[in-house]
């Protein structure tokens, strides 16, 4: 196994390159993914290396996803890029009515092995329509896998696995982590879709996070540690399938939990996590599970986003509220 220090964007690029090298049916397309290499450079160099297997398309997201459906029906493994989270909405009908349902509609005759990459979430000072946390829309739709890496290593492994998967995957790339650097194990990957991971051991309470919120949770755990409280951090990696087993085992081990997510809290992935854990672990809980999420507002302008995003202090305040005195 080879290791290299890469940014998340570079790790994603390597995953695409390695998948395209290994499997001729893998094709990459979208807006500006050709010679430019994508606005975040994730597809850098692919069109030079693979020719027409990586191509620019007209600027039309429904068409991009719809064409990918047809190519997946006909022997290809398309990986398409939606340029930004909120620019994926024109493709919503294709994703919900066809990508998610084709296997089921045809009783398993037609599989759609395709990956929809979406640079998502905020924290980069982006203007409106560039910072949405849209995971709940996809997670609510049966038939899709929905994953969100938080490290360059997971980005590489999850993307390789998503491309090889027989099921369609909505691959959410936290924009603010594109430039985060870490050791990445390249080559063969072990399955991680559907498997949460304990990012940091801890005994007093469990922080549950995914994608862009994992570094926030880790930093909060670091600060708490200095203050004498031991916080465990669970990184979901995969929103669908959801790893009830790992998450519940973690919560049972500490008896207290806080969910951290950028998306608005109402009717969200974070509400789902609280519901699932409460249904399964009620008697292990010493306090109600708290959530630290974005407010129920449209994503704010850049100069106000720091007020909206879950930060370390808000996470630690929530941890403080976990009814420690009563126990």
């Amino acid at each position: 196994m080879m290791h290299e220090k890469l940014t998340m964007a570079q790790a994603l690029n390597r995953a695409l390159r390695d998948s395209m090298t290994e499997d001729e049916s893998v094709v990459v397309f979208g807006e500006d993914v050709g010679p430019l290499g994508g606005v975040f450079r994730v597809t850098d160099g692919l069109s030079a290396q693979f020719g027409e297997r990586c191509f620019d398309t007209p600027l039309a997201e429904s068409g991009i996803v719809g064409v990918a459906v047809g190519m997946a029906m006909n022997g290809m493994r398309p990986v398409v890029e939606m340029q930004f989270d909120a620019f994926a909405y024109p493709a919503f009908e294709q994703i919900v009515s066809h990508v998610a349902k084709m296997r089921n509609r045809t009783r398993g005759k037609v599989a759609l092995p395709m990956t929809i990459r979406i640079p998502y979430a905020g924290g980069i000072g982006g203007v409106e329509h560039h910072c949405d946390s849209s995971e709940a829309y996809y997670a609510h739709t049966p038939g899709l896998h929905v994953v969100a890496p938080s490290t360059p290593g997971d980005a590489y492994a999850l993307l390789r696995e998503s491309i090889a998967s027989p099921d369609p995957v909505v691959f959410l790339e936290p924009k603010k982590l594109y430039w985060a650097k870490d050791e990445v194990a390249l080559g063969a990957v072990s399955p991680s879709i559907g498997k949460a991971v304990i990012r940091r051991p801890g005994t007093d309470a469990t922080l549950i996070a995914y994608g862009p919120s994992v570094p926030v949770a880790l930093e909060a755990a670091e600060v708490a540690d200095r203050e004498g409280r031991s916080l465990q951090v669970v990184d979901l990696r995969s929103i669908v399938p959801f790893d009830d087993e790992t998450v519940c085992a973690a919560v049972r081990s500490t008896g207290r939990a806080v969910v951290v997510a950028e998306a608005s809290g109402f009717a969200s992935v974070s509400s789902e996590i609280v519901a699932r854990v409460t249904e399964r672990c009620f008697h292990s809980l010493a306090a109600p599970i708290r959530r630290v999420t974005g407010f129920d507002i449209p994503y704010p302008p850049p100069k106000l986003e720091h007020l909206h995003l879950p930060g370390v202090d808000r996470v630690l305040d929530a941890v403080d509220d976990l009814q420690w005195e009563d126990s």
Binding site: G70, P78, Q94, K109, V110
Partner: peptide, 28 residues
Amino acid sequence: DPYEHRVAPHATPLATQLPHAVGVAHAA
């Protein structure tokens, strides 16, 4: 079975099948 006679499923959401047709043709 759509592959047996190469016939896609009936599409009820209007025109949504047309980009699929393009994708099948482009792959071929």
